[in-house]
């Protein structure tokens, strides 16, 4: 078509298949490895039982470990990683800045405040809401995240238009406010609460259960089905808001949808696993270096890579100091930061 030779575009089918293969491998490792190592035969033999097709008789040990501990944990990790990475792409598109983080809208700090409230004030709250007690922490975190984002969104609106720059500044202010409130609760907390609070702030997939998984699974499905439908609009948005409007996109609605999507996605992820940093910022950036900025390719790549990275990080978190566990936020930063720096330096040449 063009008179001159073109640098070939990234080979997208190959790259996506590689990522899918890597994800399958991560899932396999996440199911098989742990304090009790299971070999391939044991995992395969337990598969029918996991989906409810097992024969009669008492379930064996492998099935119990897989079904009750490792499968929910693996699925939780997969969802948290994918949804954080996807929301990171959405935020970087919305702010037209490759350094934007899903936490910019105040959702993470709002969730942290909700969690602090639940942990420190939990006893009092739990008494009045007895039936909700097991979900209290997740629920408070989710609602805290939504409330903070709603506030930031309201503050960023003027004359019916969303001002992205104002929203960014409002996000910083709301984050600072929430941090102050979290600090206050930390001050009030006793030793046990303090420890719980600290661990939650570093993120963990420990104690994953199906009750914690379902809401997040639903939100992850929603986000990963919906965001790719807006891939072209996101591409246009990178040109600028008025340019996107002149290309026929309803920018105001798109911005609202992106904010809602991030609030739900990050809110649900943080509610289920605490504050897992780094994924939302680095995975989109990293994938952009590999596949380019086109969201039609970037979104699926980031979702897959986010899930992989989180599963592998969780694997390290449980194996490095076994039988003790590291908070996963430490591991994601430990893997992600050097790799990110490597790509950054390589990109300079």
């Amino acid at each position: 078509m063009y008179a001159c030779p073109m640098k070939s575009p990234p080979n997208s089918p190959l790259l996506l298949s590689l990522l899918v293969a890597l994800l399958l491998l991560s899932i396999w490792l996440s199911l098989a490895l742990g304090p009790v190592s299971l070999d391939a035969g044991q995992v395969l033999a337990a598969l029918p039982g996991l989906v409810g097709l097992g024969g009669d008789g008492p379930p064996d040990q492998a099935l119990l470990i897989l079904g009750q501990i490792r499968l929910p944990r693996t699925l939780l990790g997969l969802c948290v990683g994918a949804v954080l990475a996807l929301c990171g792409v959405a935020m970087q598109g919305l702010f037209r800045n490759p350094l934007a983080d899903p936490g910019l809208l105040g959702v993470s700090s709002g969730a942290a405040l909700g969690a602090a409230l639940a942990i420190v004030g939990g006893v009092a709250l739990g008494h009045s809401l007895r039936g909700l007690e097991p979900y209290l922490l997740s629920l408070c975190a989710f609602l805290g995240g939504l409330a903070a984002t709603a506030l930031v969104y309201r503050l960023g609106r003027r004359e019916g238009q969303t001002h992205v720059a104002t929203m960014l500044l409002a996000g910083i202010a709301v984050t600072a406010l929430a941090a102050a409130a979290v600090g206050f609760f930390t001050y009030l907390a006793d030793d046990a609460e303090l420890r719980k609070l600290t661990f939650w702030n570093l993120g963990s997939l420990n104690g994953a259960s199906y009750e914690r998984l379902w809401p997040l699974l639903l939100v992850t499905l929603l986000v990963s089905l919906w965001l790719p439908r807006r891939a072209k609009a996101l591409n246009a948005l990178l040109l600028g808001e008025s340019e996107a409007r002149h290309l026929g996109f309803e920018v105001q609605r798109l911005k609202r949808e992106l904010v809602l999507c991030t609030a739900l996605g990050v809110g649900a992820a943080v509610a289920a696993a605490g504050l897992v940093g780094f994924i939302g910022l680095v995975v989109p950036h990293l994938m952009r270096l590999l596949v380019g900025p086109d969201h039609r390719l970037l979104l699926p790549a980031a979702g897959l890579a986010g899930a992989c990275l989180l599963l592998l990080a969780d694997l390290l978190a449980r194996l490095l100091l076994a039988p003790a566990e590291l908070p996963i936020g430490i591991v994601t930063a430990l893997i992600g930061a050097p790799f990110f720096l490597f790509l950054l330096l390589r990109g300079r040449h």
Binding site: N97, S242, L247, R288
Partner: peptide, 27 residues
């Protein structure tokens, strides 16, 4: 029907040249 070229653009992402031009075909 209506195309608009603003005075300056703030694109800050590494699209290839023909990808940017192809965005004109989005509508």
């Amino acid at each position: 029907r209506l195309a608009v070229l603003p005075q300056r653009s703030s694109l800050d992402f590494a699209f290839r040249v023909e990808e940017v031009v192809a965005m004109g075909r989005m509508p």
